[in-house]
Design a binder for these strands. Structure first.
Lengths: 226, 226
DNA sequence: TCTTAAAAAATTGTATGCAATCCGTTAAAC
DNA sequence: GTTTAACGGATTGCATACAATTTTTTAAGA
């Protein structure tokens, strides 16, 4: 979120804020002060304001009138709705990818798995979390339906947020081989297996959350910039 | 789109523009000049601009840098993607409504059917088109999943747009009884029938479009305000 | 008459300034 | 000591002014 020399479009600003949320650098509930962001990005408040309305539409940010913008704190019910939606949509994504993917697409998937493995090897937890989400966004992109792709582009950052809020203290990040197994099944055109693995993967993520417990209340200022 | 005395929030501005699109008052491809809208709504361009970025995110408007905002002209491929998405999502909506709907919800559905019948009786074609879309939005709202509701709130106006672009010249609006039959099946908790009717309804709408022909090219200025 | 070039008008992109609102602090009252 | 009121600073909401860009108009040339 450091100032940049090139002029940023509002979508790019929104994207950088989204990345920060996905990497848990901006925790749920934190206030996004317009002037601070304007300074950080080297633009006027006008553009920040537009970026924030965009993010609010996306659902990543909550706008309280006259009080400002805050990173969303999804309720447990929203979290359940989100996973229900993903369980509906992602099997369809898998079906479409199997039906449409060319060699180049498969190569991109392998490349992504490689990046994930690398992030795991270096222990870069933030990158691991973001890449985990982006795996599903990549799949959605390869499925070739613009609306479903856009939906997943919203649901994935929100999922990261939910994990930040409801994750058990010392849960390890999603096991890498679940992603790899899904790619394997896709490559083998084994639709049933791919869907089963995807659903299992989603249920696995959701089951490790503590959706019945109260969400984490406080922002962990000490490690915010750690 | 006339000027108003009360101060409009940007969401309300976006909503009024959406309504105008749904009622085919703003045809696909038309340019939305910021100053004109600002005058019409009695606000400054700043707010119009935010409303337009919102609508662009929603997919109802296309933003060409330095050239302005235009009501979207969805391609045939986008139209097919849209219906594919609706065929995926709306059966789930029907399932959830059957599982969750209380008497009050059913009453709202009946009330809506009544409004549709009334619009049909008075021959108010614009209102018929908008209400047809809003029937599906109402169902989505009753399904109780915020993400699916939001998705449908985007897909329905776009569907109206697609109908404006690809509809056969003298196709009558969707037969009313298809909506009524769906509500009947929901009331009877007949999930299989409700889903079958919904899919049939969607296929019916899509099949009457001329997605293989070139979209209507020009804006019909003569009847724009007719 | 058609094409090209230049000037003018219209429109978008961005920053800034000011009013309205909210938040935290201090002071007063009970 | 606790609650309430009022002040000052900070922040948001909005309109406006100006720069950058595009579109339209006008004029000249082939």
């Amino acid at each position: 979120m450091e100032a940049s020399t090139t002029k940023l479009a509002i979508e790019q600003i929104a994207e950088r804020i989204t990345d920060a949320v996905m990497e848990h650098r901006l925790p749920p509930g934190i206030k996004l002060v317009e002037e601070k962001l304007a300074g950080a990005f080297g633009v006027s408040r006008t553009k920040i304001r537009q970026a924030l309305t965009l993010l609010a539409k996306e659902g990543l940010v909550t706008l309280h009138p006259n009080r400002g913008a805050f990173v969303k704190r999804p309720s447990a019910e929203e979290a359940r709705d989100l996973f229900a939606t993903r369980r509906l949509v992602e099997p369809e994504i898998v079906r479409n990818v199997i039906a449409r993917a060319c060699e180049q697409d498969i190569a991109r998937l392998h490349q992504h798995l490689e990046e994930e493995a690398q992030a795991r090897a270096t222990g870069d937890r933030r990158r691991i979390i973001r890449l985990s989400g982006q795996f599903h966004m990549l799949l959605a992109a390869l499925a070739g339906n613009a609306f479903i792709e856009k939906l997943m582009a919203e649901l994935c950052p929100l999922t990261c947020l939910i994990i930040a809020l409801y994750d058990a203290p010392q849960t390890p990040a999603c096991p890498e081989d679940e992603h790899r197994q899904i790619v394997d099944a896709i490559e083998n055109h084994d639709e049933a297996a791919a869907i089963r693995l995807m659903l299992h993967h989603l249920e696995h993520i959701e089951s490790e959350l503590m959706l019945d417990a109260a969400p984490k209340l406080d922002i962990h200022w000490e490690t915010l910039y750690g």
